[in-house]
Each structure stands twice: as structure tokens, then as C-alpha cells.
Simulated scan of single mutants.
Amino acid sequence: MSTAPNFNVFCVVQSGRLEYEALIFARSFREANPGFLGRLLMAEPGGPRWSQTTRVSDPVRALLEEAGAEIIPFENKHFGESYPYGNKIEAMTALPAEPFVFFDTDTVFTGPLASVGFDFNRPSASMRREGTWPEPPLYGPGYTAIWKSLYDKFGLEFDSSLDKTQFDEYWQRYLYFNAGWFFGADAVTFGKRFLHYAHGIRWDTPDELASQSLDPWLDQVALPLVIHSFGGGRPGPELAGLDGDVSCHYRALPLLYARESDAAVEMVERVTAPNAVKKVLKNYDPAKKLIYQGKGMKLRRKFDRANLPPREAMLRNAIRREGLWLR
């Protein structure tokens, strides 16, 4: 069990795709967590760094609030439209200074978070990732030099972050997460450090990163440093329910149907079935075609989940060939 009896769950929501994903998120969360004691917070970005409105539409807002979600506005002062992934970083300034678990909006819940052994004094994040960053150039610097430059930049000890069961210069040796979920003891303190590190990496980039792309990877580059700085690290077996029997970061509805568990698919279909929800979600093309027109289940029957392509990009291409890569 977690070391804190109460904690908050938050995600980021805004107009467009995220608001429809948030509706699935909120309804599945409430079904899987009927006795949850914390707050379900949805941070809504805004301000002049966006060229169009980010406000959640009124029909979706009503359904989110009906599901018990609290929509909390915040102003983008650093990222915004130029780097939307920065929302999860800046949103934390608007949260209470309490233990938190962040999830990307494209998450469906299939079990209770009470079954997850959170230790909020040892933060961690999702290991459901591929070796997407960095991409060391042929003549260097390599993985060690690139990652160590970041730890050195922020005065962090580097050696203990390494998984020494992995070979030197192999990407899994280095602390690297997917930012689809992460947690910590104090959202405000965690968020300030996350912003400090991300800002420093983007606008005062170490020379060792000269050949590296930071878009869209900036949040995933900064996150390991933040977690390590608070004494956290790779998740242990007590967190296996995340990306497991408790939560599923499906990333896109076509990927949900192609590769995720029966429990995740069944939850999505169940919580989107009520007429009031269907009336709203039909405005979102992926939901209309995949959920309500049944094309998702047809897609699902085309894939052997025991023998999926080894890389997500290959699976996406296979879905595209079916004409169903919808976002």
C-alpha cells in the first residue's frame, strides 16, 4: 500500500482530441476506483501562447464534472503551442502541494489504484518505452557522455542512476522513462524542479546534445533527472499494476484495439456506451468509427496479440494499411 493515505490524480485536458480522451479517462477511472479518497484533477491550459482556444467544450465539460473531475485552469508561461508536451510540466504549478500521480489523458483504468504500492517518497515513472532518445552520432558522443552531461549540468550524481546489469552504451543502462505516468510527494515542488530542468535543457543545452532532437522528447529527457534528484528510480514490482492490471496507456484508439488487453477494450466500450456519452463522443472521428461503427473490433481480429510487431512504428504502419490510423 502507499505511504500516503490520500493522493490526487491529474491529467491535462484541452479542446480537441484530449477532451474526448479525458472523457474515457474520467469514466473508466470512476468505475475502477469507486472508493477513491483523493481528487481527480484535470488541468486546462490557456493564455497567449496558444493561437486558438484550448477551453474544453461545454458538453464534454458537463460530462467530466458529472464524473467527478475538477477542471483547473493554468496559464502557459514557457511552452504552450510550441511544445504541447510541456503542459504536464507547467500544469503542476496549479495543483495542490500534495502527493500526486500523473497520467496521460490517453489512459484507461481497469483496476483500483489502491492496489498499487506507491511510495511517494521514492518517485518513479513508466518503463513502457523504447530507445527513442538519444540517438548518438556515429563518431560520438555516446550514451554515457550525453546523459552524464545532463546530470553534471544540474549537479546530480550519475553513477547510481545506471542499471549495471545492462551493457555500457546500451540505451537501457541509462535511466529513461515514458512520461505516460509518474508520481511524487509534492506536486508543486516536483513541478518547479521539472520546469527548471526542462527549461535549462531546452534553452541552455549542453554541447553534448548538439545533434539531438528535443521535440518531442524534452519531457522524457528531463523526467529521469527530476525523479533521480528526489531519490527515486525505476519502478519495482509493487508498481506493476500501472501499465498492467490497473491502468493502460493506450496512446491512440487504434493501438488500443490492436494490442491492448481484453479488459482495457471492454472498459472503453462499456463506459462509452451510455447515450449521453455517445452523443458527445460521436463528434470525435476515431471514437465514431472504432467504437460506435465497430471498426475497432474488426481491426482487433486482424492482430495476434501474442505475436505483435516488435516496434510500435511497425504496428502503426500495419494499422495504416488497414486505413484505420485515426487520431
Rank of each mutant, 00 (worst) to 15 (best):
F183W: 10
D304R: 11
A276R: 05
P123H: 08
S51V: 07
R128H: 15
R122G: 06
N283V: 05
A145P: 00
G86C: 11
R39T: 09
D207Y: 08
F182V: 04
Y176R: 02
K192R: 10
G142K: 02
K153H: 11
A179W: 01
Y139R: 04
E322M: 15
R301C: 10
E44Q: 15
W203Y: 15
D58T: 14
F194C: 13
E269K: 08
R301S: 14
K289Q: 10
W181L: 15
R305A: 06
W50I: 02
Y284A: 08
L290P: 00
N283L: 08
E130C: 14
V13M: 02
F29M: 03
Q220F: 05
F109P: 01
S28P: 03
G231Y: 07
L324A: 03
G142D: 03
P48N: 14
D243M: 06
L290C: 01
R122E: 12
V108T: 15
V280L: 09
A43D: 09
M297S: 12
E65H: 07
E208R: 11
A43N: 13
G236F: 09
S160K: 11
R251H: 14
D243S: 11
F120I: 13
R122I: 07
I146P: 03
R202D: 14
L299W: 05
R301P: 06
I227C: 15
L214K: 04
K298I: 07
R49T: 14
G111P: 01
L23Q: 04
P274K: 00
R193C: 12
D285Y: 04
M297G: 07
Y284R: 06
F74A: 10
R39H: 12
A22Q: 08
F100E: 06
K302E: 09
A32Y: 00
A4I: 01
C11F: 04
T107Q: 02
G233R: 10
L290D: 02
F230D: 00
K302A: 10
Q293S: 13
S247G: 13
P84H: 11
V277Y: 01
A125W: 08
A179D: 04
L18V: 08
E21K: 05
R316H: 07
Y176K: 02
L324K: 00
W181F: 13
G16F: 04
P141G: 03
V108Y: 01
S15E: 15
G233W: 11
L37A: 15
T93P: 00
P99D: 04
I319R: 01
G46K: 09
L175Y: 08
H249L: 07
E21V: 07
F103T: 02
F10A: 01
R27K: 00
I201E: 14
F154C: 05
G117D: 12
P45T: 09
A252C: 14
L95H: 11
S124N: 10
R17I: 14
S126C: 13
L326G: 01
R61E: 07
I72N: 05
Q166N: 09
D186C: 06
L256A: 08
E269F: 03
D207W: 08
N178S: 12
M42A: 14
W147M: 09
D262T: 09
G155A: 14
L150G: 04
L37S: 13
L315Q: 11
I24N: 00
V12S: 01
F118E: 02
K148Q: 04
P73D: 14
R327M: 06
P123A: 12
D168A: 00
A240K: 07
Q220E: 15
S28E: 01
L225V: 08
